[in-house]
Design a protein around this nucleic acid. Sequence first.
DNA 1: ACGAGTCATGAGAACGATTCTCAGGCTTGG
DNA 2: CCAAGCCTGAGAATCGTTCTCATGACTCGT
Lengths: 134, 134
Amino acid sequence: MTQQLRMTKQRAAVAGALDATDEFRSAQQLHELLRDRGDAVGLATVYRTLQSLAAGGEVDVLRTEDGEALYRRCVRDEHHHHLVCRSCGTAVEIDGPTVESWAARVAAAQGFSDIEHTVELWGTCAACRAAREG
Amino acid sequence: MTQQLRMTKQRAAVAGALDATDEFRSAQQLHELLRDRGDAVGLATVYRTLQSLAAGGEVDVLRTEDGEALYRRCVRDEHHHHLVCRSCGTAVEIDGPTVESWAARVAAAQGFSDIEHTVELWGTCAACRAAREG
DNA sequence: ACGAGTCATGAGAACGATTCTCAGGCTTGG
DNA sequence: CCAAGCCTGAGAATCGTTCTCATGACTCGT
């Protein structure tokens, strides 16, 4: 069912870069990171890989306030949300308080179907705050 | 304090277009809509106007799954969330169940500050569903 | 190991949304 | 009515992301 994906060194490199951090990273950041690391991978490939990983639920994706996509390999498989640092991307996986049932209920009441929800918290982590305030 | 904004016919047109609908609309959609209506306004101006309206809290903004910005003039002034139709943009304003306090609590527990949250529900409205299923 | 058939890669072009530039137009305070 | 300055609009410029296509790398059957 799951289409066969060849394991190439590029895919391994991207996956490795993701595994190496807890922070949400953009495709371009990962691209640079891999280049600096010596495992240069084409930008297009980074995008493609992230896309397939996301499609397979292997990585979580979210959008910055200005629309940029950020990726992160999460520990949990089950659905969850995040508390993300706006400046460094550090993220903590959190539970949404009964968001699911609430979402379903509200949606049904309005006649909507195929419901999905987005719940993310953005903030400044302690480290970044300290760095900023000096 | 709030810098003086001149009331020009373009600004009025954009605001008017927003007032005329309940649906979330992209800058480009509004631009076309105004052109068709006869109140042609430059695309750049539409973007600028939406930007200032959003900054002033006069309109709500949210991002499509693929990063496009959608705008809507909401009825409520207080903070609220939305149940939005993926295909037509129709939206219903809804209350988030104690999201605020939950967000603050979780954030504090993790040492984060300057918290903001994003809570949106996406679905297919009854009309669009009917149209799709025939 | 050899070759065919495929999927993957990468450089650069193409895209779509949004922002910037700048010369000329409109508003507003006085 | 005038001056000073915000506004506007067309087009160029950005930026993130996707597409194109020639070339490279896997896999499998033999």
